[in-house]
Nucleic acid binder design. Sequence first.
DNA 1: AATGCGCACAACCGCCTAAGT
DNA 2: CACTTAGGCGGTTGTGCGCAT
Length: 297
Amino acid sequence: MGRSPCCEKAHTNKGAWTKEEDQRLINYIRAHGEGCWRSLPKAAGLLRCGKSCRLRWINYLRPDLKRGNFTEEEDEIIIKLHSLLGNKWSLIAGRLPGRTDNEIKNYWNTHIKRKLISRGIDPQTHRPLNSTAALPAKPCLDFRPSTPENTASMNEPITNNIISTPATDNSSSVDNTKCSSSTTEESQPPPPPPPQKEVEEGNAAAHALDLELSIGLPSHQCKYTKSASFNSVSSSSTESKSFYDFLMRPAAVAEAETPSTAAAVVAQAMCLCWQLGFQKGQSCSNCQAVNGLYRYC
DNA sequence: AATGCGCACAACCGCCTAAGT
DNA sequence: CACTTAGGCGGTTGTGCGCAT
């Protein structure tokens, strides 16, 4: 049985929105609030698909949108979050008040990719370009469930989780693009994405995800539990907790902070020696000192 | 002035998941 | 438990615009 279309396509407009349509949508949402996108078009007198209305509102009409150019600080935050989260645009957008996932996604594809390439960094793997050729993209947070194997691996020196040392180390059979440490199942050739499904299948309780960054998610305040079910903070590390706080801080709270505050938290919580193109053996003291938290080194 | 090209971004599409029945 | 539905997400496409020739 196929999926029914989200709306009656025969009688819906497509393409660019007119000012009148925008105004109708704005007026309706102002009067009735968001919700029930399926019935909204009819109620608002719009010949549009509900999905289309939702997208238009979220990406363009919402009053709290920032619009305008991204700042350098926002750039850096996006880069850093992308290195951790991969193409989880909605998660990244959640950390940038006033920015939408679509906006960030477009900005990434048109600006930041080029910027990173000009720095000699692979935009997908966040590793130096000359060491990442032909390696598949991989998000950098590990959403695998906690298992004894994982837990054990977390206590080992980190060499290949998330961003590993640039590939001078070919002798290791470990796939450096993997964000997770090697386990029995992951010692096999990496299946194409997404790992999330596997994770969820192996985690019926959906509560034991371990991000290996010791990031946890208080379910009461994060709307993104569906996309990334973070576990509770399991580390006493101040740094990881700071970054956890930053990631999981509601956008409304984050908005109250200055971008530099947010950036500082990221800078504090993440070791970026990898991003600077350090070669093996040149990693900073943080990488060596914080066992199990930074997977970049 | 006309044309071609590349870029930026709004919008669409298909899929997934949670919630409802 | 199976099925349906709405909402949400990420990838991709379409189109308008500016610039170079």
